[in-house]
Design a protein around this nucleic acid. Structure first.
Length: 228
DNA sequence: CAGCCCCAGGTCTCAACCAG
DNA sequence: CTGGTTGAGACCTGGGGCTG
């Protein structure tokens, strides 16, 4: 949950997880705030519990953001702030693996920032980004937005861009992606899944002066290498 | 729309090698 | 030793994709 080491990204399927989604006042993890957080707890691929809470960002919601998520200032006026909601979410999530779409570059940034800001600690949960998994399954696709994946699997996108609806949609997508992963050749999965033991980032095969070697994609921050 | 990140491709840098 | 060449890693940049 909280500690001094950030969790690592996993690119694969797990049957037990907490899938979450945030709605925010914008796309900047420096200047913007969370206005809704929702999550579903999943055990053996089935939703067993839900969590959803509007958040008062203590500032006006920009028009452009309201147009996307349909959340207005009036709707959040009497809601708690994120300082109250985040501990509730963390209790709900426990030490489960967190799952979401494009969370590596978006949602996790907000969570990391606010955990640091409120508790001076890091979020230790490992996480799965379904965008990464989708890239693995459908490298030939041009787009892999959550709505594209939902449409591909015939999942209803009614009410999209509200956190809980997106969570449920994403949960079904993740279960379908799991089936795609099962169908994939082992070699293809393994080559993509080699993880750096130092920092948890994926490793990549590189050609060096002295031949092939595995290098961490976190270079230059992480300089871990392995022989092929 | 803005902001952020990833990724591929191009360029730069530097060490190794070799000829003179 | 010096200078030129080569090749691989480091670094930079622009385009594309995804989010609200």
């Amino acid at each position: 949950m909280l500690g001094n080491k950030k969790g690592k990204m996993i690119c694969g399927y797990v049957p037990d997880y907490v899938l979450f989604d945030l709605e925010t006042t914008g796309t900047s993890c420096i200047y913007d705030e969370v206005i809704e957080i929702s999550a579903v707890k999943v055990r053996s691929g089935k939703v067993v519990e839900e969590f959803s809470q509007l958040v008062n960002p203590k500032r006006p919601i920009p028009y452009a953001a309201s147009m996307v998520n349909h959340i207005s200032d009036e709707m959040v006026a009497n809601e708690p702030d994120f300082g109250q909601v985040l501990p509730e979410f963390l209790t709900f999530a426990g030490d489960d693996i967190l799952v979401g779409h494009n969370i590596q570059t978006f949602d996790m940034k907000f969570l990391y920032r606010d955990c640091e800001r409120l508790f001076q600690q890091k979020l230790t949960n490992d996480y799965v980004d379904t965008l990464r998994v989708a890239k693995l399954c459908f490298p030939e696709w041009r787009h892999r937005r959550l709505s594209d994946l939902a449409e591909h699997y015939g999942i209803s996108t009614r009410g999209a861009h509200r956190a809980l609806t997106d969570c449920k949609m994403n949960q079904q997508v993740f279960e379908y992606l799991a089936k795609e992963l099962e169908k994939m050749p082992a070699a293809k999965k393994q080559s993509k899944e080699k993880i750096c033991p130092e920092c948890g980032l994926p490793m990549k095969k590189r050609n060096g002066r002295f031949g092939e070697f595995w290098g961490c994609t976190g270079y230059p921050d992480c300089r871990h290498t392995e022989n092929t």
